[in-house]
């Protein structure tokens, strides 16, 4: 069976702008923003990419959206290599994959009215026969995201709307092209607590109603638990644990996941917590250690962790973990998910 989205050993490196000395010496330092990410996503599935700032989750999203080009690795959508798409194939890909931005205040052109912004996808994809029909579609989309009555929003500019309303407009814009895959990067982190639930519920309804496949990117595990059936936890550009959301959050296996889950504060002050302590160091995505990227901070670090990078391998209950604490029966080869690949 083929998957809707298949990401294989995805890598993205940025050359580091370094000083004159290193330029003369000819040394080339790179930032490994995404360092070998692999996962598959089936139609109708919902994946949560969790992790702290700088773990590469947003870069992964932008690679999938083809806003960035990968350094190595591949992304296949419905069996086709995304990097190789061009012309009408690319346009059709753009129609099938949509993005919800983190900052709704910046996601709409400040000089466009809401109507103008929402007509844009219809113009680009030549949806609708006449301007009247397009306006009808826009009205329908605004209505669907509970912005009522739609006409009252047509001539508003983004700065006249609240964050919650703007995010709904952004969702409406994505819906207008009838996408298959929806990627949302921290869709509510800029919104006030009291209105977050409204936006999240809307997105849940929409994905159920339209059988959307979704990827949610968030630092907030609670949000991912609410929205996603599968969770991948990222650290320094790699996935350290992936599996069914309930499993990953209730029984975290990777020491990093354990620390992350236990550190999340709880709104209920009576519930006891036993946080796992890990060191506060400056994790830098350049000059990665040869071994496990988490080794420096890991409370259960072993000798092997410092020189051998663990592979993302199945443990149990459908969970895959990249950690030497979970020795695996399959023999290690140079192939596979965590294999070190020299950039060409």
């Amino acid at each position: 069976m083929s998957h809707l989205l298949e990401v294989t050993d995805l890598r993205k490196e940025y050359p580091l702008q370094s000083g004159l000395l290193s330029a003369v010496m000819g040394s080339r330092r790179v930032v490994h923003a995404v360092n070998g990410v692999s996962f598959v996503l089936d139609e109708g599935g919902s994946l949560g990419l969790a992790g702290e700032s700088g773990c590469g989750k947003t870069t992964t999203a932008k690679l999938i959206l083809r806003l960035l080009h990968p350094t190595a690795g591949s992304i296949r959508f419905a069996g086709r290599d995304v990097a190789a798409l061009d012309g009408s194939d690319l346009l059709s890909y753009r129609r099938q994959v949509q993005f919800i931005f983190q900052n709704p205040y910046e996601a709409l052109n400040p000089r466009f009215t809401i109507l103008r912004s929402l007509l844009e996808p219809l113009i680009i994809h030549e949806i609708g026969q006449s301007i009247a029909e397009r306006v009808e579609r826009v009205a329908g989309a605004l209505d669907r995201v509970h912005l009522n009555p739609p006409e009252t929003f047509f001539l508003k500019y983004p700065h006249q709307l609240s964050g919650g309303q703007l995010q709904r407009v952004v969702i409406a814009r994505a819906l207008l092209v009838d996408p298959v895959l929806l990627v949302a990067d921290e869709p509510v982190s800029m919104l006030d607590v009291s209105i977050r639930a409204g936006v999240l519920n809307l997105m849940r309804e929409l994905s159920r109603e339209r059988k959307l496949t979704t990827i949610y990117i968030s630092h907030d595990l609670a949000l991912i638990r609410y929205m996603c059936s599968v969770t991948a936890v990222m650290y320094l550009g790699t996935i350290c644990e992936i599996g069914p959301t309930e499993e990953v959050i209730e029984h975290p296996r990777h020491p990093y996941t354990q620390a992350l889950v236990s550190a999340v504060p709880d709104p209920d002050p009576t519930r006891p917590r036993r946080p796992v302590e890990i060191a506060d160091t400056v994790p830098t995505p350049f000059q990665l250690p040869a071994g496990c990227p988490f080794a420096d901070r890991c409370p259960q670090v072993m000798e092997v962790c410092r020189h051998l990078r663990p592979l993302l391998l199945p443990v149990d209950a459908g969970v895959r973990v990249a950690c030497h604490l979970y020795p695996d029966s399959t023999p290690r080869t140079a192939e596979g998910y965590g294999a070190k690949m020299e950039p060409h």
Binding site: V193, R196, Y226, I249
Partner: peptide
């Protein structure tokens, strides 16, 4: 109004 990590949330209710 917002999800909890410790408990499987029922449907959230916004204000």
């Amino acid at each position: 109004a917002f999800p909890s990590l410790r408990a499987r949330s029922a449907r959230l209710v916004p204000i």
